[in-house]
Amino acid sequence: MIYCLFNRPGSGGFVVEAALSLAETSFELQEFESKPGTPLHESFRATNPWGQVPTLILPDGGTMTEAAAILIHLAAAFPDKGLGPAPGTSDHAKFLRWLVFASVNLYEAVLRRGYPFRYTTDPGGHGALAAAANARLKDGLAVLEAALAPGPFLLGERMSVADIYFAMLFTWVHGEIEAPHLVAMKNHIKAHPVIGPIWQRHFGDR
């Protein structure tokens, strides 16, 4: 059995598809042709009870969800492919710190900004919730921008799947903040011979 990735264009599953491709491992792509943020078919909850992508079925039949967790797993599963630094090193500590920071703070802020109705039962509060999430997102990206210096990647000259994750989050902000390190990193990733075509399919020229 090979990996099977449930995904849809423009979603957080982009980074998992990129990581699997960098790992040079065989995988089946099950892609839903629906807009990110819209509910998936109820039957999909048999695969992922939370009803979201990305969802990755492992070769042994196990299921993984949450993009950051999947990236950490794949980096460990393919240690010779350069997806992440070796466990136990200072670079690995840095990799984990900022990947989890981005997942907990930035990704969540993106969701609160885009889908405020998920986080309050008061329709009148949607605007204020989205505005607060947007401010939080920009603050978090500024912190990440400082962490990337001097660049071009989090770990200097070595790209990891964390950088691909950061670039994905940053492109959802559509250039709303001044972040030259994030811009340069995103451009490196868009130009990567393996990742570039996947980026184009998910995000176009953004």
Results as ranks from 00 to 15, higher is better:
69 A>F: 07
165 Y>W: 00
87 P>G: 01
151 G>R: 12
101 F>Q: 03
166 F>Y: 01
74 L>A: 15
193 P>C: 01
157 E>L: 07
81 K>H: 10
23 A>V: 03
78 F>W: 15
135 A>Q: 09
90 S>H: 07
88 G>K: 00
187 N>R: 15
202 H>R: 09
153 F>Y: 14
179 A>T: 05
166 F>P: 02
45 R>Q: 10
155 L>Q: 03
47 T>W: 00
16 V>T: 05
198 I>G: 08
173 V>D: 12
144 L>G: 06
61 G>L: 00
194 V>A: 00
43 S>C: 08
101 F>T: 00
162 A>R: 03
48 N>P: 02
14 F>E: 08
140 G>M: 12
3 Y>T: 00
128 A>S: 11
166 F>M: 10
119 Y>V: 04
12 G>A: 11
93 A>K: 00
184 A>Q: 09
95 F>A: 09
177 I>S: 13
188 H>Q: 14
143 V>N: 08
104 V>E: 14
187 N>K: 13
86 A>E: 13
179 A>C: 10
22 L>W: 14
100 V>Y: 03
105 N>M: 11
13 G>E: 11
123 P>C: 01
163 D>A: 02
140 G>V: 05
114 G>S: 14
74 L>I: 04
115 Y>M: 12
134 N>G: 13
137 L>C: 07
148 L>S: 03
178 E>L: 05
82 G>P: 05
65 T>A: 06
200 Q>G: 06
120 T>A: 13
50 W>K: 12
6 F>S: 00
65 T>P: 01
26 S>D: 14
41 H>Q: 13
205 D>T: 08
55 T>C: 14
145 E>V: 07
19 A>C: 02
120 T>D: 08
31 E>N: 12
104 V>L: 13
17 E>C: 05
107 Y>F: 10
43 S>G: 12
165 Y>F: 05
199 W>Y: 10
17 E>P: 03
112 R>V: 02
130 A>P: 03
93 A>H: 08
159 M>Y: 07
167 A>F: 09
